[in-house]
Design a protein around this nucleic acid. Sequence first.
DNA 1: TAAACATATGAATAATTGTTCATATGAAAA
DNA 2: TTTTCATATGAACAATTATTCATATGTTTA
Lengths: 130, 130
Amino acid sequence: MEKKEAMCCEHTQVHEELLQIIRQTMPEETELYDLAELFKVFGDSTRIRILFVLFEAEVCVCDLAAALHMTQSAISHQLRILKQNKLVRSRREGKSIFYSLADAHVRTMIAQGREHIEEDRKQITGNPAS
Amino acid sequence: MEKKEAMCCEHTQVHEELLQIIRQTMPEETELYDLAELFKVFGDSTRIRILFVLFEAEVCVCDLAAALHMTQSAISHQLRILKQNKLVRSRREGKSIFYSLADAHVRTMIAQGREHIEEDRKQITGNPAS
DNA sequence: TAAACATATGAATAATTGTTCATATGAAAA
DNA sequence: TTTTCATATGAACAATTATTCATATGTTTA
């Protein structure tokens, strides 16, 4: 296994050096997997919308469903994923269960995403390049 | 269409107020979609690994394929997605095409993701709670 | 020009995923 | 206890997606 990678693109020197740096800086497989998993959670507009609601208030499941015009079941399934990934937490109050944001990173990450998109928009309107 | 959402959970007052706030703060459909789309791009470990390589250097396709032990075709397909979403840019040099990071948000977003995961780990090891 | 090299891309396949539907759990009210 | 309300969850289905394979595009070298 683990066959030596074939030489390519002529520049064989850079190659060795690069591979060394990569070996040093690349996170472990499990961390890469967890990272991708985390971003995957943000990669669904229903979950994003849920998070935007929770930015404003602690909300119960049926209110979330009503606010987003979606089934209670659909919302519940997505809340489960958000909770498994520690993006939200829940609290029972009588029959209802209230959800809220779990930590500050959620806001920061979404803010960064919005900035990136904003810059895209600026570039597009300001400059019709390739 | 757009039927009035059914009352639920008794607390009908908060309901109205909450819906108002949501209407004001929730981004438009297209932005929500674009946001999810952006995060989706980060939500694949192959693309994450490509980005980690590009954190270190500007690299051509075949070097990426070699470094990550993957097919040239697989890498090329993923680079296409990264490029479409403005996370990387490319530059031709003879036969090769070199890819590099497109902007600083990429680093920030991944850093935030790592922090979130780190905190999870700390919580798990430090505190065996539910 | 033809051949070789580096990359891109369309089609096909396997795997993952979001929603719906039916139903289960768990708490409060009758 | 039985009913009702709020939420969770398993199974099924449709849609999306990552990789592979074959091949096309574009550049350099012979």
